[in-house]
Nucleic acid binder design. Structure first.
Lengths: 262, 262
DNA sequence: ACCTACTGTTCGGTAATAACGAACAAAGCG
DNA sequence: CGCTTTGTTCGTTATTACCGAACAGTAGGT
């Protein structure tokens, strides 16, 4: 583990929605690093365009992060088809749809679509990281990993209770994941947020492994009566995406040269 | 300049649309670094989730890049309003619209919208980096920087000729940028790609500085006859975005807690 | 089922280099 | 104007990233 890289990402992680701009001194204080060290770190990151300098010598996140993120997205096979199916799902069901991938032992929202201006779930957003043990998408993705791996990482992180329904014991989670595998989808019964339920289903890649998960998030009072209906819908959506995921590989053909347009 | 960070970004930059997956040995050969060094680099980046490991011990870009990119986008004031105006513009004009920011001495496309399935400009995409001296958006952004700064950076990079119309001399560019400032917009007369023209206008931030640029890209044969019309359209669009950009700062109010949704 | 050629990772000793505190100039503010 | 705080620079010390070789595991070909 290279310490410079560790520190560099600590710096990058400072930047948030609430605090998108940092000075060297503030950062140094927060990270408890010497000012000179922090200065060199941030200056180097800025040279690489992972940070950008503001007029006043302060720093913001740099656009190379956006570039890298775009090539990540554009080489994620299932994303285009997933988006198509998700739009369809939002239209027919009128509920919020999420797409997430597993990153370590946490899940990351890749996409979020919600019915135009209806009941909005403000809590989530694309790029947000969430606990896997208490979310529908998270449980689906964990269910398709080797348990040993999951257990080890979860021991370090713990299973914080976000609501009274959250599963907080490793054994209980193991049982739950077994059920998820059996029935082919996961439910979140107000385990993350009181009043919010969801169904999530796995998306399989060309090699048959679960690469992502889609979910339908519905207010609790509306969810239970139509549970089966929602379940069927998300399963079908996930199947559609999975089927075209393998084939979608051919849809990135040449992209030819790195010619620049205007 | 910390060498570890320099090497880390060299590694990150390996990943592209054509080559989204790299092994340690391949990377080491390409970067001309010892295999062990490269292994530690990539392994450390993976620990920080800037890379992710595939099943077979190879590497892909990591989802933390997406997270960081999203907070960058979500804290870029003008983006939401820009998108709204751009959609409008595509609808009324039926031509491709770009949004770009300056990053160093190059421009980066932040957004690209094109009329549904019409004549597509395949050359550009969001996240792409392009030479500033030969593109509409690029010239607009350069025009609003201090010339000394621009000149210095351009000397290092040079002014490669992408077509016979490309400005390749620093003096000529200085004159051109002066014209851009005077008339308030920049033209790209097949300077990047033969057959493609565009008009670009600056977006001003709350402090009156040019923070981004929007452009309208049109095939040459269609452009010249309607040049004035397109110019008026892009200027108005840019003005709209600029006006709401200052105010848009208040639209990110609390975002409250980092509660996680499902 | 073999063997070969490759993969990614581990391990120490060594030399390069990142860390650090102090001194610096510049900007912000009272 | 003077006081504080900003970001950057500098030179020395000790940390630490580098490197080659040896490692275990896999894929491919015979």
């Amino acid at each position: 583990m290279l310490r410079t890289i560790e520190k560099a990402t600590q710096v990058l992680d400072l930047f948030s929605l609430e605090r998108p701009e940092w000075g060297v001194s503030e950062a140094a204080r927060t990270l408890k690093l010497p000012k000179s060290t922090t200065s060199e770190l941030m200056s180097s990151l800025a040279n690489q365009r992972l940070l950008s300098r503001t007029a006043k010598g302060r720093y913001r996140l740099g656009w190379r992060l956006f570039e890298l993120s775009q090539t990540l997205l554009d080489t994620t096979e299932f994303r285009i088809e997933a988006r198509r199916v998700m739009e369809q799902l939002v239209k027919t069901r009128g509920e919020t749809v999420h797409l997430a991938v597993l990153d370590g032992v946490q899940a990351v929202y890749v996409e979020k679509l919600q019915p135009t201006p209806a009941v909005k779930i403000k809590i989530s957003r694309a790029g947000a990281r969430l606990f896997a043990h208490c979310s529908g998408v998270g449980k689906v993705l964990l269910a398709h990993c080797e348990w040993e791996y999951v257990a080890e990482l979860l021991e370090d992180q713990g299973l914080p209770a976000l609501t009274s329904n959250t599963i907080t014991e490793l054994d209980a989670l193991a049982d739950e994941l077994e059920r998820v595998r059996e029935r082919g989808c996961a439910y979140d019964d107000e385990e993350t947020l009181v009043g919010l339920c969801c169904v999530a289903a796995p998306i399989y890649g060309s090699k048959g492994n679960a690469v992502a998960s889609v979910s339908l998030s519905v207010p609790a009072y509306r969810f239970h009566s139509k549970k089966d209906e929602y379940t069927a819908a998300i399963l079908e959506a996930a199947r559609h995406i999975s089927e075209s995921a393998g084939a979608k590989l051919q849809e990135y053909p040449s992209y030819e040269m790195e010619v620049q347009g205007t």
